[in-house]
Design a protein around this nucleic acid. Structure first.
Lengths: 200, 200
DNA sequence: GTCTATATTGCGATAGAC
DNA sequence: GTCTATCGCAATATAGAC
């Protein structure tokens, strides 16, 4: 199954933009990585930014589906959070640069942050705070916890791992199984931290 | 107290590099922000990268001192982690872009990552894993916890907050007091999550 | 759909006057 | 120490042949 040029350019962009950011990559570099002519970036995507925007859409679309199913799920708050975290790890296995693009946009927002990224982040934040509030209401989680703090903590636990993994490659080996193992253990620490021990 | 041009260029660089990254800022932009001539970047720092390197040194030097005092401290593992986290929040108040530069270098490493950034990250990682191991040995923390996971979780909890704060400005107001409050609450969740409940 | 060639702009850096 | 002027180069994007 021979890949066409458009797909090759997208794959090159995923790799290089994830590594160096939008401003850090030139169309010459992109076309060389893809084994294609630099003029074809304009031909297929209008511009370098057009390629970047197409990649952002590709990367983030799985998150929408994940949040839909997470919100619909009929389970306890604790189970919802475990299931959500596992799904994030699974999605990361399929879309390995997703966290890099998300953190890159949070850190140095491009002009696509507001129109395309923000809504995903707000939906994830909303899912977490809603689930945490639900858990407090039903007695699973501590009443004295600040849900904003807890939501940001959990987001940090998961996201930081995926962007810092290249740095810690020497210590921590990286495989899809390792990713899921980390996320499950980290979520376990988090859930222990917010659990209500004062009885049901 | 009139600021000299060198200082104004550093301040402009702190702001703009934190916002857009090394590749995303031009020397014309930097000099305009500083109200100085673009030729003075070469004059004082040799190049744009020279200015960036000088800023990195400024940003990271407080971390070295923090880690020195954290390691020397004579306190229980739990207290050490609380003290460390509070100090990170305090340092962030004085060096507000530190986390941005650190996360920026983790995400899109410049050629300065290996020579200047990596050692700070490894020292922080070492401090956290050492302290967590100590806490397991003395019965304060759960024996079944993976220290690498716990260390990365705590790093994620703290760092993610400081880079995502601009995004959540609408929900969470930002002041130095808020920062310390977040960090203390988040560390409380973490410590509850790793605490050994099976008695001493 | 892919190529070469090129137009145009903006970049980082420097020379040299003051 | 600060300025203007400019060099050389690399950037993106496009026109037009194939």
């Amino acid at each position: 199954m021979e890949k066409n040029t458009k797909e090759k350019l997208i794959e090159a962009g995923e790799k290089l933009f994830a590594l160096k950011g939008l401003a850090g990559v030139s169309i010459r570099e992109l076309s060389q990585e893809a084994g294609a002519n630099s003029a074809l970036i304009s031909y297929y995507f209008g511009s370098k930014e057009g390629l970047y925007a197409a990649i952002l859409e590709n990367q983030f679309s799985p998150i929408g589906a994940l949040l839909d199913s997470a919100a619909r799920e009929d389970a306890s708050p604790t189970e919802k959070i475990i299931s959500y975290a596992r799904n994030v790890a699974v999605v990361h296995g399929r879309v390995p640069f997703l966290t890099k693009f998300m953190m890159g946009e949070i850190l140095n927002p491009s002009r696509f942050f507001e129109p395309v990224i923000r809504k995903y982040i707000e939906r994830a934040y909303r899912f977490l705070t809603d689930t945490l509030n639900e858990g407090i209401a039903c007695g699973e989680f501590r009443k004295d916890m600040d849900v904003k703090t807890a939501a940001l903590s959990l987001a940090g636990i998961i996201n930081f791992y995926f962007i810092s993994r290249p740095i810690f490659r020497h210590f921590v080996s990286d495989s899809s199984a390792q990713d899921e193992q980390y996320v499950m253990q980290a979520v376990d620490i988090f859930l222990n931290g917010v659990k209500n021990y004062d009885g049901q």
